[in-house]
Simulated assay, not measured.
Amino acid sequence: MAWFVLVVSGMMEAVWAVALARSEGFHRVVPSVLFVVFLAGSLGGLAWAMTSLPTGTAYAVWTGIGATLTAVWSMASGAERATTARVGLLVLLVGCVVGLKAVA
């Protein structure tokens, strides 16, 4: 159950990161509210998962999921260019996250 919560929390990290960027310095209400809600949920889930998972592993997986999904969203939405190098590095990042799960 802790792994499931950790994965969902990592996904929520991507939502709050995108919402933060779209809040325009907290001047836009809806993205600002989404940022606060998803930040609280994401950190709460990470904290809960850390009660039964090693801290370093949990944090690395949470960050890896959030960073990967944020980058994929940015490329899919056209905010960033999707290059072979970026996609390849994201594949490596996902491989590292899966590897951490495999050895935990």
Results as ranks from 00 to 15, higher is better:
92 L>G: 10
104 A>G: 15
14 A>F: 02
21 A>S: 14
3 W>E: 05
43 L>K: 07
69 L>V: 12
33 V>G: 07
34 L>M: 13
68 T>I: 04
35 F>Y: 14
24 E>Q: 14
87 V>G: 03
85 A>F: 13
85 A>P: 00
23 S>D: 06
76 A>C: 11
26 F>Q: 04
5 V>Y: 08
39 L>W: 01
16 W>M: 04
70 T>E: 05
93 L>C: 12
19 A>K: 04
42 S>G: 06
81 R>E: 12
67 A>Q: 07
33 V>F: 10
24 E>V: 10
53 L>F: 08
99 G>N: 03
17 A>V: 11
21 A>R: 12
23 S>G: 09
28 R>A: 08
71 A>Y: 06
10 G>E: 02
93 L>E: 05
82 A>F: 02
97 V>L: 09
25 G>D: 06
80 E>S: 07
72 V>C: 08
96 C>A: 15
30 V>P: 00
76 A>P: 03
95 G>S: 08
20 L>I: 14
77 S>N: 13
55 T>I: 15
30 V>Q: 10
34 L>E: 03
87 V>Q: 09
72 V>E: 01
6 L>I: 09
50 M>N: 07
77 S>A: 15
8 V>K: 04
16 W>T: 03
30 V>L: 15
36 V>K: 01
25 G>N: 05
52 S>L: 07
48 W>G: 04
80 E>D: 13
1 M>I: 09
66 G>A: 09
43 L>Q: 11
40 A>C: 08
2 A>Y: 11
73 W>F: 15
40 A>G: 05
46 L>S: 06
42 S>V: 05
65 I>Q: 01
81 R>L: 08
94 V>S: 04
92 L>T: 12
85 A>K: 14
11 M>W: 01
89 L>K: 08
14 A>Q: 01
53 L>C: 08
74 S>C: 10
69 L>D: 01
87 V>S: 09
78 G>N: 09
63 T>W: 00
78 G>L: 09
61 V>R: 03
91 V>I: 15
78 G>C: 09
42 S>M: 04
